[in-house]
Amino acid sequence: MALSKATVFSQKYTLNPEFNDKKSNKELLGEHDSLSLTKCAAMCQGVRECCFYGFNPQKKKCRTHKKIFTSGVFNEVDWRYYADECCLSGWRRYQDHCYLFQQTFLNWNEAKTNCTNNGAYLVEIDSKEEDDWLVEQISMRNGGKNENQYLGATSHAQLGVWRWSTDNALISYSNFWPGQPNLYAAERCIVLDWDATYGTYKWGDTRCEMTRKFICEKDL
């Protein structure tokens, strides 16, 4: 059974035993209370710059760092440190995935190629939480208005049957506006569609030859 994005991210951190019982304020993002290693991992995952974190199970503390520290090290027992892959500059992280909000206007096929050339794919949204996060990110840019974004699903093979382009899997989550998709034969692609009346985004179908902004996604 495939693991969800939320499940996978906590399994990708690598223990760095050479930092056992060590501590440093170099590259430090913050120190927080944390009841468990999993919660500490989630703290690091939730910060785009975090690539390294330490957890102290006795003190129930979590320290998040930009990267592995190489100086200013001193001894303090019970700290264990874990490294993680990070997103490239310009990309934003959510759970175990990186997202690039492209500002170029391309048609769907061109957008798909652009993402492929970046080692990624057109974004595939599989939960409300991911959807909400993407909307939040878009809305922070110029008020979020008139910036419809291509998603990676199409109904090229069969009208009204939406599949992700990476593996041809049926979409398992959707968030269409009322009346969408309207199933016009020419509208075989999906966008995150801004509506000024409601001041937010939901999904809508569109003609694939229309030029839109788009979001690339890749796995860590």
Rank of each mutant, 00 (worst) to 15 (best):
N117I: 14
G119N: 15
A120K: 06
Y121P: 03
Y121W: 13
V123T: 03
I125P: 03
D126P: 03
S127I: 12
S127V: 08
K128N: 06
E129H: 01
E129P: 00
E129Y: 00
E130K: 06
D131A: 06
W133C: 01
V135Y: 01
E136R: 05
E136A: 13
Q137M: 14
Q137D: 02
S139N: 11
M140I: 15
M140N: 13
R141K: 15
G144W: 00
K145S: 14
K145T: 15
N146S: 15
N146R: 08
E147N: 11
E147Y: 02
E147V: 07
N148K: 04
N148W: 03
N148C: 05
Q149C: 11
L151M: 11
L151E: 09
G152V: 02
G152Y: 02
G152L: 03
A153L: 05
T154M: 12
T154P: 08
S155C: 11
S155I: 07
S155H: 05
H156V: 14
A157R: 09
A157W: 07
A157E: 13
Q158A: 14
Q158C: 10
Q158H: 11
G160Y: 14
W162F: 11
R163V: 10
R163Y: 13
W164T: 00
S165R: 14
A169T: 06
L170H: 12
L170D: 13
I171S: 00
I171W: 04
I171V: 09
S172A: 13
Y173R: 08
N175C: 07
F176D: 03
F176G: 12
W177N: 05
P178V: 10
P178A: 12
G179Y: 02
Q180K: 11
P181E: 15
N182T: 08
N182V: 04
N182M: 07
L183R: 10
A185E: 15
E187Q: 14
E187N: 15
R188H: 08
R188K: 12
C189D: 10
C189I: 08
C189G: 12
I190P: 00
I190L: 05
L192A: 11
L192Y: 06
L192P: 04
D193K: 08
D193L: 07
W194H: 03
W194N: 01
D195Q: 04
D195K: 08
T197S: 15
T197E: 14
Y198K: 10
T200L: 04
T200H: 07
T200W: 03
T200I: 07
Y201Q: 01
Y201H: 01
K202T: 08
K202V: 06
K202I: 05
K202A: 10
D205K: 07
D205F: 07
T206F: 07
C208M: 04
E209F: 12
E209S: 13
E209R: 07
M210D: 13
R212P: 09
K213F: 11
F214W: 05
C216Y: 02
C216A: 05
C216M: 03
C216L: 05
